[in-house]
Design a protein around this nucleic acid. Structure first.
Length: 290
DNA sequence: TTGTGTTTTATTGCCTCC
DNA sequence: GGAGGCAATAAAACACAA
């Protein structure tokens, strides 16, 4: 039900004579009550306290009735102690419309609005002030919701990556253990062969090592073997400035080898060359835009 | 009907701008 | 220094469950 309350009120006010005015009110009331499904005004009064009915006939109509009662009691109210009164639906609607146009109030507009709505300029100013506060509060609430959703998504992403990282680490350890075992078996087999002099033994073993390195590139797991626990005595770590690591063949003489970013051993896309094995990235890392 | 939580209107005090 | 904005708060009005 969409009643033009202001139109009805204005029509009513045209009747300055109290008799005709009262008669018109009765006619309007009857029309409205019939429209609402009540047979008479009395029936409406009987049902006025019903909460469900209140919701059906709506705030707008309630406001209209309140306005009428308010006008009836205006003289009494002016004499009595001034109480806090809620603005009518019409007044609030007008204020809302003005607020949409501009939420700041110039003095001229304030006075004009006050005259139009029959309120004090101070009331208009207060209403705009409170409305801005409500708007700000809602915006803060909305921003908080968005930030929280973003944070939750990021957190979930981080947890997934962490789990993936743990799984890869476990796999790596497993491969490393296998490799150690294989190396031990190989060295025992070499010792069991014909004994040779220390010099030739060193020579042979170095040649074997070189041959092994030439024929078979280091396995994935060997790349992550730290120097202290390396099963390859000839392998050392080369530390990148950005914490990436790579091993090099320093068989003859230990030395640091500078490796370019475009190293063939590492694919820059490969996440394995970003983090060390035992250290998961911190949350801060994810926020630095890597 | 009543207690309680929420919304709306209004006040106060402080701050900034002209 | 006055006007106006804002944050904090009071208090009345309102909504609603029990």
């Amino acid at each position: 039900m969409d009643l033009d309350v202001e139109l009805i009120k204005q029509s009513m006010k045209r009747f300055s004579s109290s008799d005709s005015f009262d008669a018109l009110i009765t006619v309007y009331k009857s029309a409205v009550f019939l429209f609402m499904g009540y047979e008479t005004f009395d029936h409406f009064h009987e049902d006025k306290t019903s909460t469900k009915r209140k919701q059906i006939y709506g705030r707008e109509f309630q406001a209209m009735m309140d306005c009428l009662e308010e006008e009836d009691c205006r003289e009494e109210a002016s004499q009595a102690t001034e109480k806090k009164r809620r603005l009518t639906v019409v007044q609030v609607k007008a204020l809302e419309k003005n607020f949409e146009v501009d939420n700041k109030l110039e003095p001229d507009r304030k006075v004009k609005l006050a005259e139009e709505l029959g309120l004090q300029p101070r009331q208009i100013a207060v209403w705009f002030q409170n409305r801005r506060a409500r708007l700000k509060s809602k915006e803060l609430e909305r921003d908080y919701g968005l930030l929280k959703a973003n944070y939750d998504a990021l957190r979930l992403d981080y947890n997934n990556l962490q789990q993936e990282n743990e799984a890869l680490t476990a796999e790596l350890r497993e491969l490393k253990a296998k490799l150690c075992q294989e190396n031990e078996e190989t060295s025992h087999a070499v010792e069991a062969e014909a004994p040779v002099s220390e010099q030739s033994k060193n020579h042979v073993s170095s040649e074997n090592a070189n041959a092994q390195l030439l024929t078979s590139p280091p396995s994935f797991s060997s790349l992550f073997t730290g120097s202290s626990s390396s099963s390859h005595p000839s392998m050392n770590w080369v530390q990148f400035s950005d914490s990436r690591t790579i091993l090099s063949n320093v068989y003859q003489q230990p030395q640091l080898v500078k490796v370019e970013e475009q190293s063939l051993l590492f694919n820059p896309e490969d996440p394995c060359n970003i983090f060390s094995v035992d250290q998961a990235p911190t949350l801060q890392w994810y926020f630095t835009g890597h």
